[in-house]
């Protein structure tokens, strides 16, 4: 699955997207997996209340299932307009 990062989440992790082989069932499971990888992921995901999620380009949450998901994105609250 493709995992995308935007804004300061991208800066903390140090890359805009990566391909990850995972069997994570939910977004939460994926976050736990990423946190365990390296400090930069743990730093980016330290405060989940500051992070929003999209699964296949639709807004979701940390309980969203990842079955058949092709793309997951993590980013701060949006500031359009």
């Amino acid at each position: 699955m493709d995992v995308l990062y935007f804004a300061w989440v991208r800066e903390r992790i140090g890359l805009p997207r990566e391909r990850i082989e995972t069997s994570a069932a939910t977004v939460s499971d994926l976050v736990e997996e990423l946190r365990g990888r390296e400090d930069r992921y743990a730093a980016a995901f330290a405060d989940l209340s500051a992070i929003r999620v999209a699964v296949d380009q639709e807004l979701g949450d940390f309980d969203s299932p990842l079955a058949n998901a092709r793309e997951v994105a993590f980013f701060p609250p949006m500031t359009g307009g």
Partner: peptide, 25 residues
């Protein structure tokens, strides 16, 4: 306008005399 502000995936980074920072929602 209300929905564009918080439901469209844009993020603003300001650059100025005091360095740079992401605009918080």
């Amino acid at each position: 306008m209300d929905y564009l502000k918080s439901r469209a995936p844009f993020w603003k980074k300001e650059r100025g005399t005091e360095g740079e920072n992401w605009v918080a929602a």
